[in-house]
Amino acid sequence: MKIYGEYIKVESRKDEDLIDITDLVSKVVDRSGVSDGIVMIYTMHTTTGIVVNESEKGLTKDIVRFLSKLVPEDGEYMHHHFFREDGRMAVNAWAHLRSILVGMHTSLPISKGKIVIGTRQKVFLIDFDGPQTRSIYIQVIGI
């Protein structure tokens, strides 16, 4: 049994951005040397999420719009107060809540050294409070 882990960094370009990280995940699996097993993709940030879905321009907009309707920015959130630990006002409760809805990690099977993924499936990091540089931890477990 082998366990291999790597941090990767990605940059979001908009306040809400979906970034296709499928190729980055595949490269980590290649580097791990694991032939059969599982890969876990885990975002290190509480205002981001990891999802598997289709990379289609209209759909990626729909995802952002739908989540914005579910958790609007203009809600009254208890999180919005001065956060002494960060030295700044917390103003992004909606980004945290959207992150909870989509989840912060996903797992994919690995077979014959490749991730098992549908032709229309892509792995996305969703940044709900960009643009920023974001860290993702990818762990590969297998033989």
Binding site: E11, R13, E85, D86, G87, R88, G130, P131, Q132, T133
Partner: peptide
């Protein structure tokens, strides 16, 4: 302040 350190390129894009 506890904020993430960002490359200048990202800041400019922001």
């Amino acid at each position: 302040l506890r904020v993430s350190i960002q490359p200048l390129r990202v800041f400019v894009d922001q």
